[in-house]
């Protein structure tokens, strides 16, 4: 009979710890929810969760950068809505307009990030207030731009990103993981990444070390907005239509995914890989509460309780961790 030796178990735990405690939560939730609702174990549902998690996942990657530098980006909701409105109204169902409309959306998002970063660094506005303000402006601007009556649609070629499959995997998941790997590499292996952590951990010390703090902060917010835009574009591809309320769901879930993934709200500590787990966890939890037979009120209580519990567990398991 196969026995797990204590040494092997401890090695396995160390491995999981290095990845991030959130992955234990992801697996535990998967097992528990599957035992309660066998539907969760179906391969289709697993792929479905991975497909849906991609939208939140990419937005949360951007949010991770904002949290890493000690800030927060609450404008991601507005950026998702703006990207959805802009790309559908420019694409108008045509293939010829695909590339320019995607580029314009991304450039607009980068501009929003630049404004956020400038407000925070140059005008010294608190990140929470600055980005919440930008969020409100973006929603208002989307309303003015559309007159409350959005029109347009995506081109069929673009639908592949959000709805298609490649080698049995949803294309959106593949895009997400590719973006996640690139961002993980940038944050862990480049000097720019190291500077992000340094600025988040202690901006004054970072400045003394000669790190251009303002430039790093602005870059983090630009990247956060661009990620929110990419997440918004994938979600647009999934549904194909403009919708003025489409970004609202990301305002706080993006922060929840990052925090569940082990990134500290205080900055300077966390990882992209953890956030990927966090996004899977939040989506898994939503799917589970969609499937399980509970009332609407109980769903919200259950979601809140499980998130709180997982963060608690993270602290217990993750406290022994030496590196994130």
């Amino acid at each position: 009979m196969f026995m797990i030796s204590p040494a092997r178990l401890s090695r396995a735990l160390r491995f999981v710890n290095r990845l991030g405690a959130v992955w234990i939560a992801v697996i535990l939730l998967y097992l528990v929810s599957g035992l309660i609702s066998p539907g969760m174990f179906q391969i289709n549902e697993t792929l479905n969760i991975l497909q849906i998690a991609a939208f939140l996942g990419i937005v949360a990657i951007g949010q991770t950068l904002a949290l890493l530098v000690g800030g927060i980006d609450l404008s991601v909701a507005g950026v998702v809505t703006m990207s959805n409105i802009v790309v559908t109204s420019l694409m108008l169902g045509q293939s010829e307009t695909l590339v320019p409309s995607l580029l314009i959306s991304i450039l607009l998002a980068a501009a929003v990030g630049f404004i956020n970063g400038s407000l925070i660094t140059l005008a010294r506005v608190t990140p929470l207030v600055a980005t919440l303000g930008t969020n409100s402006i973006l929603f208002g601007a989307s309303l003015v731009y559309t007159g409350g009556a959005p029109h347009g649609s995506i081109s069929p070629a673009f639908a592949v990103c959000g709805q298609g499959h490649i080698f049995g995997l949803p294309v959106s998941t593949v895009c997400w993981l590719a973006i996640g790997l690139v961002m993980a590499w940038i944050t862990r292996q480049t000097t720019f990444g190291r500077k992000l952590y340094a600025v988040g951990a202690n901006p004054a010390a970072a400045r003394l070390m000669g790190i251009p703090v303002n430039r790093i902060l602005i870059s983090a917010y630009v990247l956060s907005s661009v990620m929110a835009c990419l997440g918004g574009l994938l979600l647009t591809s999934y549904i194909g239509l403009p919708s003025l309320g489409i970004g609202d769901q990301f305002l706080l879930t993006s922060v929840a995914a990052v925090v569940v993934g082990g990134t500290a709200l205080s900055g300077g500590w966390g990882s992209i890989v953890g956030t990927i787990g966090g996004a899977i966890f939040i989506t898994e939890l939503n799917s589970f509460t969609n499937i399980v037979r509970v009332s609407t009120g109980s769903r919200f209580v259950l979601q809140g309780a499980v998130i709180a519990l997982s963060v608690l567990m993270y602290h217990l398991v993750g406290s022994k961790r030496t590196s994130s």
Binding site: M40, Q42, N48, N290
Partner: peptide, 12 residues
């Protein structure tokens, strides 16, 4: 939102 919820229900 409806498409996401329904996708879960379809699996279940």
């Amino acid at each position: 939102r409806a498409k996401v919820v329904m996708a879960d229900l379809i699996a279940a």
